[in-house]
Amino acid sequence: MLLSIEGLTKRYQRRDTTFAAVDAVDASVERGDFISFIGRSGSGKTTLLNMIAGLLAPTEGSVRLEGTDLYALNDKEISRLRNTRLGYIPQGLGTLANLTVFDNVRLPFFLDKRSGDASGRASYLLEAVGIAHLRDMLPAQLSGGELRRVLIARVLMNEPDILIADEPTSDLDVETAMGIMELFATINKRGTTILLATHELDTLEFSKRVLSMAAGRLTEEQRA
């Protein structure tokens, strides 16, 4: 088991009442899984993914990556984990505007001490996601679909065990969205575990498992 989620709960205080954005979620993820979380907006998908990605401390419960409790780690350790093993594409947080496409993709490599051919790998990834010709452009010059591909190339830079993406196909036309989903499927076939949040049902055919969420709870599991 790669990832185990136990009793994961996030409560927020709103004036006098507390409400649970994520309420006692249990789940387990195996290596090579391709899981889609579906649900309406406000159902708690983003909060759940943020907690799984090691960005948001839960009120209760735990997220364990091969037995390691993410929230028992200090800033340095969790940062390293995010950098090397948990690739996260949050919704709305895109590229760094001051860096070229190529530098955006290379960046994760340089956020920790490591040696290797960063430029070679970045070029390979840009090729793989089909935007090699855009490498010296600035993000502002790119279209929505191209930007998503930059984000995917970047998240793969350090070969993470798990790729987490929050609404990766939102605001894209159907054709572009399908292209992105096919890319995810290819990545998954090569061994990377993928967790997606989505509310577009036509993207589900690419997933191996689909978990629906409502009011912070996992309601049902359907095998795709």
């Binding site: 990605a53 960005l55 800033d75 940062s79 390293r80 950098n83 996260y88 947080l93 960046l107 970047r154």
Partner: peptide, 11 residues
């Protein structure tokens, strides 16, 4: 974004 990509606060 830097943090999401794994930069520490120190970085």
């Amino acid at each position: 974004l830097f943090r999401v990509l794994g930069a520490t606060k120190g970085k």
